[in-house]
Write a protein that binds this DNA or RNA. Structure first.
Lengths: 218, 218
DNA sequence: AATAAAGATGAAACAGTTTCAGCTTTTGCC
DNA sequence: GGCAAAAGCTGAAACTGTTTCATCTTTATT
C-alpha cells in the first residue's frame, strides 16, 4: 500500500538516493516553502488536503521536487509536525532553564504544562499535525526515536534532572508511558473547542501528569 | 482524498444507496466472511494489508460486493474493530453483572480492567484494529458516537450506576476523557511485547484509571 | 565563460478505491 | 414445479493520489 515497483525495475543495485540536505539557498527556500505550505493547508483544510499535487500547485514547485527533500508523503507531514514541536519545545526549554531549582517539582511541572499548552494553541496547524502524526506513527512499544521522543529528550529528561530528588535517571519504558499519556491528552485538549471544557481539561491533564511523575520518580 | 466524482456525474438526486442489511443467509455469510478475512489479515500482516483487491481475492468475493455491505474501506475496518470490541464488552458485561454490589468500587474497577485486558489479548487482530481505528477516527471533542463510546455505554456507565456513591450520572465530557485515556493506554498495553513490561504497565494503567474514576465521581 | 554540481520539471507508471450496468441466485407466490 | 421480483454478485474501467526518472535549468567554481 505504499512501496511501488519501479517501472522497468531499476537494474542498478544503487541504494536509491535518499532525501537530500539542501546545499544552496534556493534549495533551503524550496524546502521551507513546502513545509510552510503544509502547515497552512493543514490549518485550513486538514491533513487530508495535503496531496503532492495540491502542494505542488500552491507552492509553485513541481511534484518531483517534493521528493528531493522528503522520501514520501508521510515524511513530509512528519517533518512539518517536527517543526511545530521544535518551536514549542524551544519555548518550554527556555522557561525550564529559568525556573528556580529550589521550587517544588509539582509546581514546576504545572508551570511547564501550562506553557506547553499555551504555546501549542498558538500554532493553528499543530492539532491537525498531531493527529496526522499519530495516524502515521502508531504507538510503539520500543522506546526508540518514537512519538514524542524529542519532547522527552528536550524537556522531560532535563526537568527530572533538575527537580527529581536523587536525580534518578528514569527508566525508558516509564518515560515512554509518560510520552504516550501526555501526547494523547494534549491532543484531546487541542481538539476541544469549548473554553470552559478546556479549563476543566487542564486540571484533568495536570492531575494525571502529576500522578505519572510521582510514579516515575517514586 | 476520498470522495470521488462519479463518472458522468450521476444526474439522479437519489440518496446513493447506502450499505445494505443482509436479508438472505448467503449475504450474511458473505458479510461475515469479509469481516473474518479482515481480522485474519490484520492479525498476520497489519491493517495496511487490507486492500479491497486483496480482500476480494482471499474471500473469493468480488470487489464490488464489498461495497454492498460497507460504504467504504474505512467502514470495513471500523466494523471489524467493532466486532472485536463487542466480544470483549460482552465478556466484561457478564462479569460486571456478577460482581457483588457491596464490594468497594476500586476493587471492582481493578477486576474489570484485568478482565478487559485478558480478553483483549485473546484477539490477535485487536491491537492492529485499535490502531487503525485511531487513525481513521481521530480524537474528537464531541461526546457523540465516538471512539470507545460503546465501551462507555456498555460497561462504564453501568459500572458507575452500580458502584458510584450517590449514583451520580457522570458528565459526558469526563466520560469522554476516560474513554480517550483508557483507549490509549490499552493500545499501548497491547502493543507491548515484553511480559514484565506488561505487568508493570497494568499497574500504571490501573493507577490512572482509579484516579480518573475518583475525579469522575468525586 | 566553461564546466560540474545542485536543483527543478512533469509526463507517465503505479497502487488502490469506488462505481455501475448487467448477470445469477434466492424467495415467495400461484 | 414454474416464474417474476428481489437480493446478491461480478469485474472491467473510471478515478484519485503517489512516486519515478530522463532531461532541462540554475548556481557555484575556477
Amino acid at each position: 500500500m505504499k512501496q511501488f515497483q519501479l517501472l522497468p525495475k531499476s537494474e542498478t543495485g544503487a541504494p536509491a538516493t535518499s532525501p537530500v540536505v539542501p546545499r544552496q539557498k534556493r534549495a533551503q527556500r524550496t524546502r521551507t516553502a513546502l513545509l510552510d505550505a503544509v502547515e497552512a493547508l493543514v490549518a485550513t483544510e486538514g491533513a487530508d488536503a495535503v496531496t503532492t499535487t495540491r502542494l505542488a500547485e500552491t507552492t509553485g514547485v513541481s511534484v518531483g521536487t517534493i521528493y528531493r527533500y522528503f522520501s514520501d508523503r508521510d515524511q513530509l507531514l512528519l517533518a512539518a509536525y517536527d517543526g511545530t514541536v521544535a518551536r514549542i519545545v524551544e519555548t518550554c526549554g527556555e522557561a525550564l532553564a529559568d525556573l528556580d531549582p529550589g521550587m517544588p517539582m509539582a509546581a514546576a511541572a504545572r508551570k511547564l504544562l501550562g506553557l506547553y499548552l499555551d504555546t501549542a494553541e498558538t500554532i493553528p496547524a499543530h492539532s491537525g499535525l498531531l493527529a496526522a502524526m499519530r495516524a502515521l506513527r502508531p504507538i510503539e512499544a520500543d522506546q526508540g526515536g518514537g512519538n514524542e521522543a524529542s519532547i522527552v529528550g528536550a524537556i522531560v529528561a532535563p526537568f527530572l534532572q533538575k527537580f527529581s530528588a536523587g536525580g534518578v535517571a528514569a527508566d525508558p519504558s516509564r518515560l515512554h508511558f509518560l510520552s504516550v499519556l501526555m501526547g494523547t491528552l494534549v491532543d484531546l485538549y487541542l481538539v476541544t473547542p469549548d473554553t470552559s471544557d478546556r479549563t476543566r481539561l487542564r486540571e484533568e491533564i495536570e492531575a494525571h501528569m502529576l500522578l505519572a511523575l510521582e510514579r516515575l520518580s517514586g
